[in-house]
Computed example of a mutant assay.
Amino acid sequence: MEITDTGDAAADLPSIRAIGVDGLLVSFGTQLSEAANRAALAFRAAIEAENLTAVVETATSLTSTYLRFDLDGADHAQLRDKLAAMLARRDWYQAPLPQGRRLWHVPAVFGTDLAPQLDDAAELAGLSASDAIASICAAPLRVQTIGFAPGQPYLGELPPEWDIPRQTNLTPRVPEGALAVAIRQMVLFSVSTPTGWRHVGQTALRLFRPDQPDPFLLRPGDEVVFKPVTREEYENICRLDDVGGAVSEALG
């Protein structure tokens, strides 16, 4: 696999670029795809397993793997060479996803005044409201990355009909646990915030738990499948279940 060391976003991929004084970014795509996201997740796991000298932090975006390192223990050239050698070992776009991932089953109420933009989003996707719910809940969605707010997952990909645009105007605020859709992705909001994504479902999840030893409920590479529930069931979950009714199982 040819490695390009350049800042040109149009260059052949994967590429290795310096980020700041103590970071390197390995990019597998210039736009989101299943293969690029898979490669970023798998490569991050490989870096952590390699236990590279001086690496103090790793993270993934939708299509890239980032690492930060201690300048007293290594320099850019040394780490770049090691990363290039790792990239050459295999086709990372076909790599297995990391071990330790989990499948989460998450109750969600769709529509009603709790998630008032379901009908709008369904119409844009060319679906009835009931078909839209069935489509969203038909298969697990991968946690492609965590970002924007602490513990907040971007989930995907949905089928092609869900390649709907963001709104031109912001919704002033959606609540914590809101499930919103755009561009074949879903966001589960970990905080109450304005958004341009359409609010189609509502969960009772606490995605960011700063009082816990592990504050993020979901991890990149995990998968989430949504289970439609009634408003009454949702309200019971809010009242009785401090993890939002979610249950999980190991994926391997």
Rank of each mutant, 00 (worst) to 15 (best):
L13T: 05
R173L: 13
M86S: 11
I164W: 04
L71S: 13
F43M: 05
E235V: 01
L124N: 08
A85M: 06
Q31I: 02
M1Q: 12
T145D: 06
A125F: 08
L124I: 07
E223W: 01
A129T: 09
G7M: 04
P107L: 06
F189Y: 15
L205S: 10
A125H: 08
P107T: 07
L41F: 06
P14S: 10
A36M: 01
T112C: 06
D222H: 03
I237L: 08
P116Y: 09
D120N: 11
L41Q: 10
C137I: 01
I146T: 05
A45R: 01
L118F: 04
D241L: 03
L179W: 09
N169Y: 12
S128T: 14
Q31E: 14
L179P: 11
T145Y: 02
A149H: 09
T203A: 11
W104A: 13
W197P: 07
L41V: 01
I16A: 03
E34A: 15
D81F: 00
Q78M: 10
A49Q: 13
G126N: 07
G221K: 03
A10H: 08
A108R: 04
T60C: 07
R102N: 12
H76M: 02
R80I: 00
E223Q: 14
L158R: 05
R17M: 12
A204C: 10
A85W: 00
H76G: 08
P14C: 07
S64I: 01
Q202S: 08
I133T: 06
L114F: 05
A204P: 05
I16Y: 02
P150S: 09
I136Q: 13
Q78S: 14
F69A: 11
A42H: 08
D81Y: 00
T30Q: 14
V229Y: 01
E223C: 07
I47C: 12
F148M: 13
L24K: 08
A178H: 10
A74D: 05
A138K: 12
G73D: 02
E48D: 15
V225L: 14
A40V: 06
I183A: 15
D211L: 04
T171K: 08
P140Q: 07
Q99S: 15
G156T: 07
L114N: 03
V174M: 08
T4G: 08
A11C: 03
D211R: 04
R239V: 05
T168L: 13
T65E: 01
L41C: 06
L83H: 02
L13P: 05
T53Y: 00
A54H: 03
V21C: 08
A122N: 12
N169D: 15
A46H: 14
S135I: 00
A35R: 07
L218R: 01
L103K: 08
L52I: 07
L141D: 10
A180V: 09
A138C: 12
I3G: 10
H199N: 14
F148W: 13
A84C: 09
Y234V: 01
A246L: 02
Q212M: 09
L124T: 04
A46W: 11
V109M: 10
A46Y: 10
I237F: 05
I16W: 02
Y234L: 13
S33M: 03
P107V: 03
T230D: 09
V143N: 05
L170E: 15
S248L: 01
A59L: 04
E157C: 04
R239Q: 15
P213I: 05
V229M: 02
L97D: 11
E161H: 11
F216A: 14
L218G: 02
D22S: 15
Q167Y: 00
